[in-house]
C-alpha cells in the first residue's frame, strides 16, 4: 500500500493544476479511448430496437411530467391572483394530504422530512412572506411575467438535467424559490403569499418525492387539471394547440431522436464529454 501511495498520482486533464508530468504528456487511457473511437466509427450503425424506443419514450415522458408539474406554479398563481379565490382551504387540504402520505411512507422519507426542519421552514416562510410581498412591488407586472418565464425555463432545464431523480438539487430548489418569490409580489395579502409559497413547495418539491410522477393516476389527474386550466383561462383553441404540441412531442420526437441517433449522431462528441468536463459546479 505504501508503494502505491508513493507512486505518481493519476494524471488529470486540467491545465491550471501543477502536476508531476511533462507538458506534452499524453495519457495512455486517452490513446486507448481514441482507438476505441476509431473502431466505433468503422462499425455499422446500430439498429434501433423496440426496447430502445420504449426506454427513450419513457425518458421523454419523464420530461413531459416535469413540465406538467411546473405548470402547477402558474395554475396556483392564477387561482389566487386571476380568479381571486381564497387559497387557505386548498393549502390546508394539500398539507393534510401530504402529512397523511408521509405517515404512510415513513421509512423512506423520514430522514429527509423530519418534523423539526419542516416547522422551522414553515416559520421562516411566515416571517418572510410580508418581505416577499413588498420586495418587488415597484417592478412593473410585465417585467415580472418575463422574469418568471425565464426562471421557469431555467427551472425546467435544471430539474431535467439533475442526475439524482428522487432528490431535487439545491439549485433547482433555489430557482423555484426565486420564481415563486418573484410572482408572490403580485399578490395582495400576506396570507395569500404564504399559501402560494407553501403550495408551490409542496407540489414541486415534496410531492414528487412521495409519489411517482409516472403513476397512471397521478398522470391523469395532472393532465386533467392542466387541460381544464388551459380551457378555462385561454379557451379551447389554445388548449387544442397545447394538446397537439404535446402529442407531437410524445409520439414524434422519440422517433426523431432515434433516427437522429442512428443517422446523424457523431461519436466524436464523446471526446468533449469525457475529456473536457466543462460543466460548472453550482450545487
Amino acid at each position: 500500500m505504501t508503494l502505491r501511495n508513493r507512486k505518481k498520482s493519476t494524471w488529470r486533464r486540467l491545465l491550471w493544476q501543477r502536476q508531476d508530468y511533462p507538458d506534452n504528456y499524453t495519457d495512455p487511457n486517452f490513446i486507448k479511448f481514441l482507438e476505441k473511437l476509431e473502431k466505433k466509427k468503422k462499425e455499422p450503425r446500430p439498429i434501433a430496437t423496440s426496447e430502445d424506443y420504449l426506454e427513450i419514450r419513457s425518458h421523454f415522458l419523464d420530461f413531459y411530467y416535469v413540465v406538467l408539474n411546473t405548470f402547477f406554479i402558474f395554475i396556483c398563481f392564477s387561482y389566487i391572483y386571476y380568479y381571486n379565490r381564497d387559497p387557505l382551504p386548498l393549502t390546508t387540504f394539500l398539507t393534510i394530504a401530504i402529512i397523511f402520505l408521509i405517515k404512510c411512507k415513513k421509512t423512506q422519507v423520514s430522514t429527509q422530512l423530519n418534523l423539526k426542519s419542516s416547522i422551522i421552514i414553515t416559520f421562516m416562510m411566515l416571517t418572510l412572506s410580508p418581505v416577499l410581498k413588498s420586495l418587488s412591488k415597484t417592478t412593473a407586472s410585465d417585467s415580472i411575467w418575463t422574469l418568471s418565464f425565464w426562471l421557469t425555463i431555467l427551472y425546467i432545464f435544471v430539474v431535467s438535467s439533475s442526475t439524482q431523480k428522487d432528490k431535487p438539487s439545491n439549485l433547482s430548489t433555489n430557482v423555484l424559490f426565486a420564481n415563486v418569490s418573484v410572482l408572490a409580489s403580485r399578490l395582495s395579502t400576506t396570507t395569500e403569499v404564504f399559501c402560494f409559497l407553501s403550495i408551490c413547495i409542496e407540489l414541486n418539491i415534496i410531492l414528487p418525492k412521495l409519489i411517482e410522477r409516472s403513476n397512471i393516476f397521478v398522470v391523469i389527474t395532472s393532465n386533467f387539471i392542466v387541460y381544464t386550466f388551459l380551457n378555462l383561462t385561454f379557451g379551447w383553441y389554445h388548449m387544442l394547440l397545447f394538446f397537439l404540441l404535446s402529442m407531437v412531442y410524445i409520439t414524434v420526437l422519440p422517433r426523431l431522436f432515434l433516427y437522429w441517433r442512428i443517422n446523424y449522431h457523431r461519436a466524436d462528441v464523446e471526446v468533449l464529454d469525457i475529456w473536457d468536463p466543462k460543466i460548472p459546479i453550482l450545487e
Binding site: 426506454e55 425518458h59 426523431l256 431522436f257 437522429w260 441517433r261 449522431h265 464523446e270 464529454d273
Partner: peptide, 15 residues
C-alpha cells in the same frame, strides 16, 4: 442513463 442524457443534450441542441 448518463450517456443517454448527453445524447439528449446533443439532440436538443440539434433540434
Amino acid at each position: 442513463v448518463n450517456s443517454y442524457k448527453n445524447e439528449y443534450f446533443w439532440f436538443s441542441q440539434h433540434f
